[in-house]
């Protein structure tokens, strides 16, 4: 070993780049390599070149399809609100945890009667997201029983105003469904609206106390949501 000439600085540098790419650099060497890789473009180039050389060791490694749960977990961790069909409905279920309790209280009343209907129709819901501020309201609609449970989870009407819920149907004027004075409100779903529930959009406007005087919204539309079957 003594017959070798001492390495030149270039050789040292090259070796450090290789060690760094291999993951062998430790302690002070690692600190130096890390620092130079960030600042010294020649050194960074040498590291990249070693990475290119060494990666060929993976050529012989056969691809293995990872289980689907890896992608699911990845997507879920990176994009908590991702729009895949199942996840798209998550907010509805989050809403349900609030709204359904209130809704169930209403729906359970007739169930206590001896002739209570045992089969319920489909349940619909929507999240009304604020268009102006952070107002957030969930609505759960039960067309078979003609009820709407409205839960406000964020936001509030402007001072001196009240929130009013509107049914929007294609080619028709907005129909008031009632005021939403509290965090949780129960409203009636008129049969003529329930009949068109597949095309229904809900909106919330701010109105003077007592609600829109002429039966049509006068204030600003503060939140909108498209109704979907849950």
């Amino acid at each position: 070993m003594t017959d070798l000439p001492p390495p030149t600085p270039e050789e040292e540098s090259e070796f450090l780049a290789a060690e760094y790419a291999l993951g062998l650099a430790e302690g002070e060497n690692l600190t130096e390599a890390r620092d130079r890789a960030r600042r010294d473009s020649l050194f960074a180039g040498a590291v990249a070149a070693w990475q290119e050389r060494l990666v060929a060791m993976t050529d012989a490694i056969a691809p293995v399809a990872p289980p689907a749960r890896v992608k699911k977990a990845l997507i879920k961790s990176l994009f908590p609100n991702i729009r895949v069909p199942f996840m798209q409905r998550l907010w509805v279920w989050q809403g349900l945890t609030f709204a359904s309790l209130a809704m169930l209280a209403v729906l359970a009343m007739p169930m206590l009667r001896p002739d209570a209907p045992t089969i319920a129709g489909p349940i619909y819901g929507t999240q009304l997201t604020g268009t102006i501020d952070d107002l957030q309201v969930y609505a759960v609609l039960d067309p078979s029983r003609g009820g709407i449970a409205v839960t406000r989870t964020a936001g509030a009407p402007p001072t001196g105003r009240v929130l009013e819920l509107w049914a929007l149907l294609p080619d028709a004027a907005p129909v008031s469904l009632g005021l939403v004075p509290d965090d949780a409100t129960h409203l009636k779903l008129p049969p003529e609206i329930a009949a068109q529930i597949d095309n229904l959009t809900l909106a919330i406007s701010d109105e003077p106390p007592g609600g829109a005087p002429e039966g049509a919204p006068t204030g600003e539309i503060r939140a909108v949501g498209t109704v979907e079957e849950i």
């Binding site: 960074a44 180039g45 070149a49 290119e52 050389r53």
Partner: peptide, 15 residues
């Protein structure tokens, strides 16, 4: 961590 490889981008291409 690598800075742009700068003057010798061909280095890794050769590699």
């Amino acid at each position: 961590e690598l800075v742009a490889t700068g003057p010798s981008p061909e280095q890794s291409a050769i590699a």
